[in-house]
């Protein structure tokens, strides 16, 4: 296990900023409860992924450039989103190749780590469950799995919780159909994917759907809400904080 740093940078992501600030704060609280100082650079906005994915390279670089200077100390950059982390880790190199910021971008990319990876692989967190019995389902984001290499970490955390029963969603590695701009640029396909995912989640009988990515939560949660399903979408940071109040 890598050495536990005294402090980390926290990159909250633009989606958390607008839609899930409590999830963002829960991640911060979990880290602080472990004695890790959390630095929240005020200049942060977005990793640049929406424009990058749309093929708007210059616009993506412009926004990403504005983030590069926010993390001057050699500390991990913890991101409560596999997708935004994946953008920085996997794509910043190519995005900045041949520019004057190439070296700075590589230095940032190398330090990016997704929240559950940090909690499990660096902190070794063993959360202690204080909540009542509950059945939950897990949805891992595509980019967490395929760009950041997040594996069992989220499930390990959930399985540590004594009163939490974790159930598996059918075809759990399949995309929920969010894809950022994709969800509104190809609404028919995205809707079909989101609907199928929501069906699979509901079929598990879980009371809550836990994910590590706000995009997936916004998407699947939107379908669940429109249908009036009782499954509660929740970011894993918020769920862990709610269950443990930092104990563990």
């Amino acid at each position: 296990m890598p050495e536990r740093p005294a402090a980390v940078y926290y990159f909250g992501t633009c989606l958390a900023d607008l839609f899930f600030p409590e999830a963002g704060m829960a991640g911060i609280r979990l880290l602080r409860a472990q004695g890790v100082e959390v630095i929240y650079p005020r200049g942060q906005s977005c990793c640049g992924q929406p424009a990058y994915s749309a093929g708007r390279t210059e616009e993506a670089r412009r926004v990403a450039t504005a983030q590069l200077g926010l993390f001057p100390r050699d500390l991990p950059i913890v991101v409560p989103s596999g997708s935004c982390a994946g953008m920085m880790r996997a794509h910043y190199h190519a995005l900045f190749a041949g520019t004057q910021d190439a070296a700075a971008a590589d230095r940032v990319a190398a330090r990016v780590i997704e929240l559950t990876q940090f909690l499990v692989d660096v902190i070794g967190l063993k959360p202690r469950d204080l909540g009542p019995p509950i059945t939950v389902a897990w949805h891992g984001s595509c980019h967490a799995m395929r760009l950041m290499g997040v594996g069992d970490q989220p499930k390990l955390l959930l399985r540590e919780l004594a009163n939490v029963t974790l159930v598996e969603v059918a075809r759990e590695r399949e995309c929920c159909g969010f894809g950022g701009v994709f969800s509104v640029r190809q609404p028919e396909i995205s809707s079909a994917m989101a609907t199928d995912k929501a069906d699979a989640v509901v079929a598990t009988g879980a009371e809550a759907l836990i994910s590590g990515d706000c995009g997936c939560l916004l998407n699947i949660g939107g379908v669940l809400a429109k249908r009036g399903e009782r499954v509660r979408p929740m970011h894993i940071a918020e769920f862990l904080w709610e269950r443990t109040r930092g104990d563990g």
């Binding site: 909250g12 958390a16 607008l18 899930f20 600030p21 963002g24 969800s183 429109k226």
Partner: peptide, 20 residues
């Protein structure tokens, strides 16, 4: 387009920037 199969996304009342 978003709302074809999803509920309207609700903005938080305070941003993460503010809470932080």
């Amino acid at each position: 387009d978003w709302m074809r199969v999803r509920a309207r996304p609700r903005f938080a009342r305070r941003s993460l920037h503010e809470l932080a």
